[in-house]
């Protein structure tokens, strides 16, 4: 059974899976940080048109997919930056346009849906040597940029306005992340397929952050988990009993999800424990419930040095801490601060 791993096609597939598994979460971390977890899906849909364009024109689909995915990612980023209200609707239009365009072009090229399907659901075991080199080169670029520029990319994704006042070229870095995402979508399309690409970018990050407290460990752990899921999922599908056809893309994604399912209860327990460590601050002994109303009549006493409420000097008068806020007598009523 294990002799399968001595075949050259299997070794090529494992190499491609390893690099894809490392690269996709490297850029996926920034995408999740900016709360754009579905961006990879959007780029994947647009890339379908790119693949179909390759089938239609006879150019290698990997190249046309890279070009179209990068253009689509830049368009998505521009729409996101400009559009305040209808940004997500515009993105949805782009997704469906990409998918429909791909199906149309494939049909026009006289090819059956089966030809497109190997890109939609992955076909890592048929990957050629030149495609393996291409995958490794692209993955290396994504990893080097994603890790090397981590301080800048982190700052921009964390707080765009602060980054702008710090003199960072925010738009440039955002476009860079979009382009990196497009590149990792195209390399992952051979491994897990365009429809499952986003899983490899998002699920390892979601799993890692169950247990991490810092950005750096999240990034590194997500890359390790991504590589583990890719290589492990591919091996699992290869070891499936003879006679059954198990697509590597499905085992890779399901293995990644299983990792999440295992860590989630652990993460939930850790967060629960963290809350126990930081209880609510102790209230002053005489603090009343915060739902009280502020009518004069409800105050049983005039506030003063001896009333028991904490006194805070405030400009020309003194406030009293009371029911979670400061207030001061002012004529017939009370000012709430």
């Amino acid at each position: 059974m294990f002799e399968l791993f001595t075949y050259e096609f299997m070794q090529r597939a494992l190499l491609a899976a390893l690099f894809t598994g490392l690269a996709a979460p490297a850029v996926g971390t920034y995408i999740v940080q900016r709360r754009l977890a579905l961006m990879g899906d959007g780029i994947g849909h647009v890339a379908v048109t790119g693949v179909a364009l390759g089938i239609f024109t006879g150019i290698a689909p990997t190249w046309t997919a890279v070009v179209v995915a990068v253009l689509g990612a830049i368009l998505i980023e521009v729409i996101r930056e400009r559009g305040h209200t209808n940004g997500d609707v515009a993105l949805a239009l782009l997704f469906y346009g990409g998918l429909a365009g791909g199906v149309l072009l494939t049909g026009l090229a006289g090819q059956s849906a089966a030809n497109l399907q190997q890109y939609l659901f992955g076909s890592i075991t048929t990957i050629s040597l030149s495609d393996v080199y291409l995958t490794m080169a692209f993955a290396a670029v994504v990893i080097l940029v994603g890790v090397g520029l981590a301080p800048q990319l982190f700052a921009v994704a964390q707080d765009e306005e602060f980054a702008r006042v710090a003199g960072l070229r925010v738009r440039g870095y955002n476009l860079l992340v979009a382009v990196l995402a497009a590149v990792s979508v195209t390399i992952a399309m051979r491994t897990v397929g365009l429809l499952l690409v986003s899983a490899l970018m998002v699920v390892p990050v979601a799993t890692a952050q169950q247990l991490t407290r810092s950005f750096r460990t999240t990034l590194v752990a997500a890359m390790a988990l991504g590589a583990l899921a890719s290589v492990g999922g591919l091996s699992l599908s290869a070891l499936a009993p003879a006679g059954t056809r198990v697509a590597p893309g499905s085992t890779i994604v399901l293995l990644a999800l299983a990792g999440f399912a295992v860590t989630w209860p652990l993460g939930a327990w850790l967060r629960h424990r963290q809350l126990l460590h930081a209880p609510f601050p102790a209230l002053p002994p005489d603090a009343t419930t915060p739902t009280e109303s502020h009518e004069v009549g409800e105050h049983p006493h005039d506030h003063g040095p001896d009333c028991g409420h904490a006194a805070v000097p405030h400009g020309d008068h003194v406030d009293y801490v009371h029911g979670g806020h400061r207030h001061a007598p002012h004529g017939e009523h009370y000012d709430e601060h």
Partner: peptide
């Protein structure tokens, strides 16, 4: 943000 970040990391971004 969408990913955990430590206090140190957020303050360190002020050094950029």
């Amino acid at each position: 943000s969408g990913v955990p970040a430590s206090v140190w990391e957020v303050v360190a971004s002020g050094r950029l």
